[in-house]
Structure formats: C-alpha cells, structure tokens
Design a binder for these strands. Structure first.
Lengths: 342, 342
DNA sequence: ACAGATTTTGAAAGCGCTGTCAAGACTTGA
DNA sequence: TCAAGTCTTGACAGCGCTTTCAAAATCTGT
C-alpha cells in the first residue's frame, strides 16, 4: 500500500505552511502568486489528494447527500437515482444510496445508516416511515421528500389522480366502457390517488363504478398477471385495463397473451410510469409518463439550494399520456369477452 | 439545527472517560459491566450517534466500498448493484456508487471521485479504463473487477462465449438453420465473446457463418429494432434471431411485431442477460440468464474478504439457458421469410 | 524614509474518535 | 498480610484538515 501524502507534505515540499496550502486548495483567501504556483507544483509532483474525511471532520459536513429509495434495481427508482446523479454532477457533493424495500423497519434502518454517515442532506423517495420521524430529521439537515405529501417538509410529487384520470379518459375516448383497473397496494398514497383518478373519469362519463372490475396488486409483474387471472376467473367483462403501473401492465399482458386474448385488438391496456422499457414492449405500451428522472433532479437541486441557503422553486414535473400501441378503438360496441372461470 | 452529541458528552454523562465509551461501543476491550451499563444508558439518553468521519479519520479507513458501474438506471447494473447492497448488509461497510456511462473519461472521473472519497476498496463493473490505471490502484486498496479479465487483478466474469453457444445451440436444436445475430458493440470484450459463441455453435452444426446475418448494435433497444430493419432491408433470410442482450431482443421483437411477423411462430428470438422484465415480456423471452445479482454479491464478498485479509474463493456464477415462449420449433423446414427491401 | 493601514502568512487549537501506555484497582497464593 | 500478577481505566497523542488570531510583510501617502 502506497504511503499517504498529506497536506503538510505538500506544505513542506512547497516551502509554505499547511494553512497556505489549504488556502490555495479551497481558494479561501488570497495567496501570493509565487507561493500559489509553488503549492500547485508540489501538489502535482506529490500527486496529492485531499482526505475528504479529514476535511469533513474539520468542516462539520460530509459533502454527501443521502438518498433513500425503495429498491435500487427497480426501473422506476433507477430513473430517479439517475436524476439525482445528474443533478449532483459538477457539485462537490456525491450521493449515497440506501434502500427501504417498502418496509418501515428497513427504511428506518436505511435512515439511521445515512444519518450515521453524516449526510448533509436527505432525499427520501416514497416509503412509509412515520412523518414525525422525517420532521424530526429536518432540524438536523435539509430534507426533501418525493412522492409523499408531508406538512412542513419540501415535497415533490406528481398528480397521480390526474394521471390516472388521463389514462382512463383515453380509454373512454376510444369507446371503452368496461374498464378494469389493476390497482396498486392501497397502503400507498399514490395507489389510492390513481384509483381515485380512475373513478373520477368513470364518474364524469356517467359510468357506474364496479368494484368487481378492480383488483389490487402490489406493483410487481406477477400481481398484474394474477389480477387478470382473478378478473377472468370471476367472469368479469371488460374491454380495457388500466394498470396502476407498467410492471403490473406487463404481467396483465402476459396473462392475456396466454389466453390468446389479443392486445389491443380484444383488450386495450394502459399502464402508468412509462418505464424506459415500455416503448419496446410488445405491443409498445400506452402509458402515463412519470418524470422519474426529473423528479430526482428537481429534488436534488432543491436540497442543494437549501444547503446553500438559496431560494429555489422547483418546477413541478407533471405526468403525460403517451399513446402507443396497446390501446385501440373499441372494435364494435357489441364486442364482449365472455369467459368461464377456469 | 440540533446541537451535536459527541463521545465525550456520553463519557461525561456516564461518568467515565471517553476511552471507555469508545471501548464499549466497539467492544475493543473488556469493560466492567456496571460502567458498560452506565455508558449504554447514557448513549440511549443522549441519543448519541458516532461520527463516522471522525472514526474514519482516526482509523484511516472510511468503511465505504466504491462501486463503479456504467449506468445506474440500467436494469443489468441495477441487478448487480442490488447484489452489492445485499452483500454489504450487516457489515459496517456501505457502498458508494459512481457511473462511467461507458466512456473512459467519465469512468476515470468516477474513479477519482471514489478514490478521493477514501473508499476502502473498489468494485469495478465493466468499463474500459486502461488496465494500468486499475493496476495502479491495486496497491492502494483491494480492487475486484467484474466483467473484464485483467492480469493481476481479481476478476469475476461469466463465460459469455458459452452462454452464446447455448443460446445458438438451443435454436439449432429447434431446427433453425438460418439464425441471425444482433451483436453487441465489438469494442466490448463480452460482445466479442458472444459473437464467438454463436459462431462456434454454428460451426459445430456445420452451418457456414454468414456475415450478412449479423448486425452490430449497441446493447440498447433501438439498435435491436434497427438491426432487424437492416436485416430485412438487405433481404436476409432467417427464422431465428439471437440477440446479444435482452434489450436489443426487445427492440428486435418490436420491429418484427410492426411487420406482422409473429414471435415465435414465424421467427424465434433468444436474448442474453435474462433481465427481470424478460419473463413478463410478450412473449416471455427465452434468454441466457446472467447472474447479475450473484456477480455483484460475489464481487463484494471477495473484496470484503481481502479487506479483512481472509481467503475467499468466489464461486464463479455461470449463465443458464432459460427457455420461455419466444422460441419454438421451426414450423416446417420449408418455412422461409421472404422480404422485399422497403 | 517612516508611521499607519492593509495584506499575506504561519502557529496553534480544534473537529470527534481511536489506540497506546502506564497507572490504578483487583486477584491470587504463600 | 504482602508481593507479584492480572484486569480495568484514563490521559494523551495523534488522524489530516480548517480556521482564527496575531505576527510578519507589504503597501500607502506624505
């Protein structure tokens, strides 16, 4: 292991005091140009790299932003994290990620790890850690929350109800009347909102809400598949499905495919999130675009601004319907799917 | 901002010396149980959290593992990072990620950031930073590389040629003779290996290699689509496609779908990577499973072992053909696709 | 050329923790 | 009961950097 070069080594090499070296590195004060030159040369020559922990200790900050997401490998959080990464580029800060896995205890653990690591600020994505806990942290460091609305905290989120409304509306406009909904877990506020949006669209079209047409899933593919199985098993009649997220839409699509039910010919599907892979799904999935990357970006810029005591008004990214090939005009008003429970 | 509780605060509160507090926290030495109790109580009462930077500075390590991947939001790296996260769970270490975006300069920058942040060890996934650079780092800290073979470094990778061989072989066994290959960027060693595996399988089946049946893509969906377009445009005749990764297979599938060419009825497709979404693709994609998560896990365990001067022989995860519904027996030996260039 | 104002510079005291070292507190056995 | 041995404990010197403070150097204007 190579011996370590410290700031004092540089100072000695350049024939100045450590304070001076620190000053040229951080530009904290004016330094005679001859000396500055000497210091820079010495740094170069010794290949000096400041020890960020020492710096952190001395300054009382870590130049680190803690980010809690739920699952790093999930395509949705992947997008958000990418946004965070981008926003931090070129700043002295670096993100450090921890995952809550949709479980309060894991999330709490993640929070502890990040706080223990002296993060200077926190970005929390979704999750269900108690509000109080988060509010408690806020007088320790700047905190911004994505995907939850918490009084007293900077929150960033998307209008889920509106997105769901648009999705359902789109189906309605294509002539569909019997629209099933694969809902997200009703413990999630966003899933609740999406269900609301669906109901509102139905209501405005004077279509009565039929509980038998909605099945609750867990936002993962298998549950979408299961949901369709359940729908078919109970003999539900529908010509379109609005899934509360793309992953469940994928699952639903497979279930339909297995039964030989064609998308969009027999049944139209619209998802929610517009994951990157959705445009290459077959058929390319109509979906509600979630600006995941932008959300991550904005949240990060906001937290950065707080850190620097700047004002910053984040633009609130909004959803957008992306029509692709999984939705089509209802063939004929008479078209109906009849299924025997298996 | 709340005032900060330090170890000496705890010491004072418990009526012992800071050293003793340190000892009970780290279990570095035996402490009379009365005092230990007192210390634990004090910690509890003051809600003390050790400052990890101070600890790091004092111990000369950061308890941090640097991980370089290429793109955090890519499903493939997502899996690997998840494996890393899991492997680190329960250890005092935490990962810190940086992305190379498949560009040497960005990768170099990522490397600098991580080294500057005093990571205790490094896991490098793919990428193309010069070997020398990596070898230079190895006398600074343990380094393990995933997906590249570098003399003098611990490397972990999968037998890409074998995987590609299995994929092609599978198609061959289904009776296919005209198998197109959508290759990965030939600047990547793994893409080269996969092409080799494809050729070897062809060779063993006495089928001459036809350059006209291979198109090079860039591992992203659009290039898969373009590849199929290119193949069709040049009037290539094929009944199956082996794509060098799933993402390109997705793209290829869409291109086929657009033309009304059915998978697997008209053309079979096999991918490579077996992304989580592939089993919910329509049709569920036959693919070569890449043990991404295991790779991340093993690499991390290995680097951890090095850190603790333990011996550890990583089990080398291997690929596995997963047959799903995108491949089928060649309908009739006479079946052929004829296409006019568009 | 000199007093006074203004910069530039270095010494030194931390930041919060660990780990060595030696002193203090207990044991033990004769 | 006392010397020798064993544990437990606290003082203190760092870890590498920042930052205050005051001294040294430089610059004014006359």
């Amino acid at each position: 292991m190579r011996e370590i070069v410290t700031l004092s080594d540089v100072a000695r090499e350049a024939g100045v005091s450590p304070s001076t070296v620190s000053r040229v590195i951080n530009g904290t004060a004016k330094v005679a140009s001859r000396k500055r030159e000497a210091v820079l040369k010495a740094i170069e020559r010794l290949n000096y790299r400041p020890n960020i922990m020492a710096k952190g200790l001395a300054q009382g900050r870590s130049l680190t932003i803690g980010v809690i997401s739920q699952e790093i490998s999930s395509p949705y959080y992947g997008e958000m994290l990418k946004g965070v990464e981008q926003a931090l580029e070129g700043t002295p800060y670096h993100p450090i990620f921890a995952s809550g896995h949709w479980r309060v205890d894991r999330e709490e653990a993640a929070l502890r790890v990040l706080v223990g690591r002296q993060v200077d600020a926190l970005v929390v994505m979704d999750g269900s850690v108690p509000q109080e806990r988060l509010l408690e942290l806020v007088n320790l460091m700047p905190v911004v929350v994505v995907g939850r609305e918490i009084q007293g905290l900077s929150c960033l989120s998307v209008d889920n109800a509106q997105g769901a409304f648009d999705a359902t509306r789109h189906l309605l406009e294509l002539g569909h009347r019997r629209i099933a909904h694969i809902a997200g877990p009703q413990s999630h506020p966003d899933a609740i909102e999406r269900l609301k949006g669906y109901r509102r669209a139905l209501g405005e079209a004077d279509i009565p809400f039929e509980p038998a047409l909605v099945v609750e899933g867990d936002y993962l593919e298998p549950s979408g598949l299961l949901a369709v199985e359940a729908l078919l098993a109970r003999g539900a009649l529908f010509t379109a499905i609005f899934a509360a997220n793309d992953q469940m839409a994928y699952g639903a699509n497979v279930a339909l495919y297995r039964r030989g039910i064609r998308v969009p010919n027999d049944v139209s599907i619209v998802g929610f999130d517009d994951l990157p892979s959705s445009s290459y799904f077959t058929p390319p999935l109509t979906s509600i675009h979630q600006p995941g990357q932008e959300l991550g970006w904005e949240a990060t810029r906001l937290v950065l601004a707080r850190l620097e005591n700047r004002e910053y008004t984040p633009i609130s990214p909004s959803t957008r319907l992306v029509v692709r090939e999984s939705t089509a005009l209802l063939r004929s008003p008479a078209t109906r799917l009849m299924h025997q429970p298996t």
